[in-house]
């Protein structure tokens, strides 16, 4: 199968170019810094707590959890309780009960928690930047070095060459996600221990009539939650990768295409910050990247913005980018 060898060619080029190594090195550095920061924060929080409440013994959190559990049970039985709160209360209680049963201080970090949190933080800017570094070079790199000529005068149709590059990008995106996960687990494991994969995590938030709706919240084990987070991150990586890929075809210079797509991303963060009223902004891909927020319920509910909406918008951008890429690439004159 020729496509397979073409992809092999592309992957070998990527390995030799050291770009993949570079991306992984950045990951290692950033995760280490992030993990160290988390450790510091954790220690400071503990210090503050013990200062305020005189909690020094390590198992004091159990008393607190017991207390909270009792409170929540009371609340659950209160006739004046809001029906909507019921499931979120149940979910909180289940989590506390799990912490008590497994002697897990809810304040403590774990590799499972950390790796998930890391990706939740990385999904809208850091991960896209890594992907851009890979994707923006795939076609424009060959254009600026002139090697594109060598590639396109073979007895292989242009669309197949481009498809092999696109599939390579998809594969490398998996690899980046894979290493982001493995590295964050390993590095944070040294700081916080490797456990925590079965702790319950609340999810299932929805937006109803512009408000966060917690009535259908439920717990999933941490490993499943992490899986969902990384899957969404992968989707985001594919989206950003496709768009950078298109720009790298249109622009032909690696530096320019990296510049364009990065400034677009950063602008997106500004836009989502300042122009929330402006209806059209929600159709921009940059403001829809925080998919994991829909899982954790930690988003600012905006009327009409749901997981399905964001995914549809992102998918639209991806498909458009891919179509433009292929049409332009197969038609263009190579003059370098």
């Amino acid at each position: 199968m020729k496509l397979f060898s073409l992809i092999e060619n592309e992957v070998i080029k990527m390995i030799s170019k050291k770009r993949l190594m570079f991306v992984l090195a950045i990951l290692v550095v950033l995760i280490s810094v992030f993990a160290y920061g988390q450790k510091q924060t954790l220690e400071r929080t503990k210090a503050q707590l013990s200062q305020r409440m005189g909690i020094t013994a390590t198992d004091d959190w159990r008393k607190l959890a017991d207390q909270q559990l009792i409170d929540m049970k009371n609340r659950l039985e209160s006739p004046y309780r809001d029906e909507k709160d019921k499931s979120s209360l149940l979910v909180r209680m289940e989590q506390l009960q799990y912490n008590l049963d497994h002697n897990l201080n809810p304040l403590e970090q774990s590799a499972a928690k950390f790796s998930t949190k890391f990706m939740e933080q990385a999904i809208f800017l850091f991960l896209p930047l890594l992907i851009i570094m890979l994707a923006a070079d795939m076609v424009s790199g060959e254009s600026s070095s002139g090697t594109i000529k060598l590639l396109l005068v073979r007895n292989v149709p242009r669309w197949k060459i481009l498809l092999s590059k696109y599939l390579t990008l998809i594969i490398l995106e998996v690899i980046v996600l894979f290493f982001a996960f493995v590295l964050s687990v390993i590095i944070s494991g040294f700081f916080f221990g490797f456990g925590g994969w079965f702790a319950p995590i609340a999810t299932g938030f929805k937006v109803l009539a512009g408000k966060l709706d917690t009535s259908s919240v439920f717990n999933v084990p941490q490993w499943q939650y992490s899986l969902m987070v990384y899957s969404l991150a992968y989707f985001v990586a594919v989206v950003v990768g496709s768009i950078s890929f298109m720009i790298s075809i249109l622009v032909k210079s690696t530096a320019a295409s990296i510049g364009i797509i990065m400034s677009t991303l950063v602008a997106g963060n500004f836009i989502s910050f300042f122009l929330t009223d402006w209806k059209i902004t929600r159709y921009m891909f940059m403001v829809n990247l925080r998919l994991t927020d829909y899982l954790s319920g930690s988003f600012q509910p905006i009327e009409g913005m749901t997981m399905l909406f964001s995914i549809t918008v992102l998918l639209g951008w991806t498909i458009a980018s891919v179509i433009i890429s292929f049409v332009y690439f197969t038609k263009q004159d190579i003059l370098v």
């Binding site: 499931s87 149940l90 979910v91 289940e94 996600l177 717990n219 899957s231 998919l291 997981m307």
Partner: peptide, 23 residues
């Protein structure tokens, strides 16, 4: 990841996801 992606969509979009079993 594809499986995870499917789950993520289900979890956030389905009207009644499975209720918490242990609650």
């Amino acid at each position: 990841l594809s499986i995870g992606f499917y789950q993520a969509i289900m979890v956030t979009s389905k009207v009644s996801a499975q209720p918490s079993a242990k609650a």
